[in-house]
Each structure stands twice: as C-alpha cells, then as structure tokens.
Design a protein around this nucleic acid. Structure first.
Lengths: 103, 103
DNA sequence: TTATATATATCGCATATCCAATATTATTAT
DNA sequence: ATAATAATATTGGATATGCGATATATATAA
C-alpha cells in the first residue's frame, strides 16, 4: 500500500475554496500563512501561488472575503456573506461526510 | 444568501471516489442504491449513470472494490486493498478538515 | 538609492471531474 | 418468446481545478 493509493480516492480536488473559507473563519491570515496551514493539514507541500491567489480572488469576487493590506502582506478575512456561505457549506459537508470522523 | 452560495465554496467536486469508498465500507451496495445514498447525504438529485459507473469502474481498476452480480444488480464491496486505501484517505481527510465538525 | 527578499498576481495549460445522452445487459411479466 | 422495466456501461464534451512559470509590488537592508 503506497501513499499514492490514498490520493487516488481522496485528493480533495475541489475542496480548496471551502478549506480556505473555513481556515480564515478561524483566524484571518495572509496568503502564505494560509498556504502553510493548508500544507500542514494535508501533509503536502504548500499550494503554489498559481493555486492560492486565484482561489482567494475567486472568493473575494464572490464577496466571501475581504483583503486588508498589512505591511508586506495582505490579510484575508471573512465577510458576513462569507460567514453565511460557510455555515451552509459546513452543514452540507457534515451531512455528506457524517460518520467519516468516527472510529 | 442563496443556495448557490454554498455550492460556490463547497461543491465537493473530487470527493466522489472517497465518498463511495466510505459508503461501501459501511455496507456493500449496488450502484443505484449507492447513488441514492449520495443524493440523500448531499441533498441533491442522484448522480447520473455517467457519474457513478465510471467512478465505480475506476475504483475497481485501482483494486479498491470488487463486483458481485446479485440478480438484477451488482453489489460492490471493498477489497482489503480498498480498506487500506480508505484508512489512509480517512486519516488525511480528518487531519485536513479537523475542526469543521465542531460548533 | 539600489539591491534583495518576500508576498502577491496573472497567464496558459494539462488534467480531472461530472453530466447528458445513448447503448447494453439482465430480470420479470405477459 | 416478447415486451417492459430497471440496472449497468460507455462515450463525448463542457467545465473546473490546480500547477508551473513568470511578472509585479512592497518592504527591508545595504
């Protein structure tokens, strides 16, 4: 059983927006901090700039997050609209994957 | 806040293989039964045949599931290899989404 | 000011994902 | 045997996803 086997059925493609929204709801962060947190959780290398910034841009364009420059970095945090979207998405997520966290 | 907002950040694209593997680990099922279970959990209509059967085929080709004809239907269940892959995938999933199930 | 380092942004692309439509197979009813 | 029903299988294609490469911006150091 190789590491690849796990990825084959769970690469989590498509969950990036949700994961970002969730992480930012716990703590506003700048892009690289966020990328590091994602890398930690997934046990992979940091998602590339071409992954993280377009994802953030998309969330901003949906009105889910706002950006605030803080020195060299930009801190991203949820809007109220983002909080609501996350709440709905979490509900669906929990319902869909109910039981996975057991055992 | 519309229903679309939730999908925008959590359509779970890419998690189908994982979800199928998880569901079959709880109970061997045939394709349509599986599709129904997925529909229930996601609160959507049943994934189309063009979604579910290629996904099952892929899992079979990876050696994660086996098929056994039972009258009109085919019952899918996990192989040992599938069990192991699921265990690894669950570990990663839990680590990645730790905290989402809280509150 | 200039150079360096780091964060952010964008673009093009390979690939994955899922769906609609259609075809096939197997079972059951007539 | 034939028709009707339901499950399974396949194919083509539209779209989404995330990466690598590259460019830009900002701050700090020299």
């Amino acid at each position: 059983m190789t590491k690849e086997d796990a990825r084959d059925c769970c690469d989590m493609r498509g969950m990036l927006g949700f994961l970002i929204l969730f992480l930012l709801s716990k703590k506003p962060m700048h892009g690289q901090e966020l990328a590091g947190e994602i890398a930690n959780r997934k046990g992979e290398k940091k998602p590339s700039p071409g992954t993280i910034y377009p994802a953030l841009k998309s969330l901003r364009e949906s009105g889910f997050i706002v950006e605030e420059r803080d020195g060299k970095t930009i801190v991203y945090s949820l809007t109220e609209r983002g909080e609501n979207a996350l709440k709905l998405a979490k509900r669906k997520f929990v319902k869909t994957f109910f039981g996975v966290f057991q055992d």
